[in-house]
């Protein structure tokens, strides 16, 4: 089995699009047992942050489902570029972070922000 891109839905965002990472914290929601209820690939430091789509990397089986052996429909994966200093309130002007983010974690930057559940 290839681990490469799968056939999937059309990309919602094009390179150059301004996007925001959803301000969501599913890891704070727990199962009744107290165990974590999710597996996510969106780093905490990017939640709510704005960036720019640099590339559409293809569609991949959603790891959030794969981790629980659920059916995992392909999701579009992007390379998103973020200015680095604003995230940490320190750093050198012009330094950047380039991170793989799945489409369902992104919203247009001009959309109203989503509050944490």
């Amino acid at each position: 089995m290839s681990a490469g891109p799968a056939a999937g839905p059309a990309a919602r965002f094009a390179p150059g699009a301004r996007v925001r990472v959803r301000e969501d914290w599913p890891e704070r929601r727990r199962l009744p047992s107290g165990a974590p209820s999710c597996h996510i690939r969106t780093p905490h430091y990017l939640r709510g942050r704005e960036g720019e789509v640099q590339a559409v990397l293809g569609a991949f089986a959603n790891p959030e489902d794969l981790a629980f052996a659920r059916p995992a429909p392909p999701r579009v994966l992007y390379h998103v570029l973020f200015a680095q200093p604003p995230i940490w309130q320190e750093g050198a002007e012009g330094d950047t972070l380039l991170v793989e983010i799945f489409e369902h974690w992104l919203e247009p930057a001009d959309a109203p922000g989503q509050e944490a559940a």
Binding site: A3, P5, R41, T42, P43, Y45, L57, G58, F60, P63, L77, L81, Q84, W88, E90, G91, A92, G94, D95, T96, L97, L98, V99, E100, I101, F102
Partner: peptide, 28 residues
């Protein structure tokens, strides 16, 4: 968070004016 500090500890000196792009390998 501090890529320039990390590179300095490695003894890696970038030419002046070089921007750093940290690539966080999060997915596929």
């Amino acid at each position: 968070r501090d890529p320039r500090g990390v590179l300095a500890e490695w003894g890696t000196a970038l030419p002046a004016g070089t921007k750093i792009r940290v690539v966080d390998s999060t997915a596929d």
